[in-house]
Amino acid sequence: MKISPDQTIFWSNGYIKINATLVVTWLMMAALTGGSILATRKIRKNGPRTRMQNFLEMIVLLIVRQIESIGLVKARRYLPFIGSLFLFIASSALLTIVPGYQPPTGSLSTTVALALCVLFAVPVFGIWEQGFSGYLKTYLQPTPLMLPFNLIGELSRTLALAVRLFGNMMSGVMIVAVLLTLAPLFIPVLMTALGLVTGMVQAYIFAVLTAVYISSATQSHPERRSP
């Protein structure tokens, strides 16, 4: 049994390996992009809207409001990054209903890549909002003595993001695979449904935590700096 889709290699040339993670990711990217193009091709700015347009607007506005509720006032600035994270992870989880499908988020490489994206996006957005010095000062809060702990916190939460998503998605697939061998009729269906819920929850958690990290990096804390 292959724990990670990384182990399914379709093509390799030295260091370069085209495995199932990459292929599925590309398919998903193509599906998301193609679906977006198709859905937004006949989008109407005035007049009656199609059901697909209503669905898209509902999803987008839901993500925007979630970001705003976390504290990011300029939610639309962070929408592409956080929204893409949520849609990618949620799509990966939803497609587990397809037999033989291995979600790319079940690969530690993918989750670590996403966590690293978050790790680098947080300072980028922080510097964008507060400037370079303003962002660096956040590591000295509440006292400069906290600098090492803040750095460790940055790394540990990135690691937590990656491992949490990987563990949940991989375990779900593993549980279904094990149960298929033990009770192949109804139990795997229930576990797949549970895996759908778990995947959606993980997508939500990943996106919300990303928003929280960006929010903490982009918002200054004058009460902390004031003596």
């Binding site: 724990i3 990670s4 370069i16 390996k17 690969s107 490489s109 993918t110 670590v112 890549a113």
Partner: peptide
């Protein structure tokens, strides 16, 4: 479980 190329590619 970890592949650097896959990570960079992802």
């Amino acid at each position: 479980l970890f592949d650097w190329f896959t990570l960079l590619a992802q």
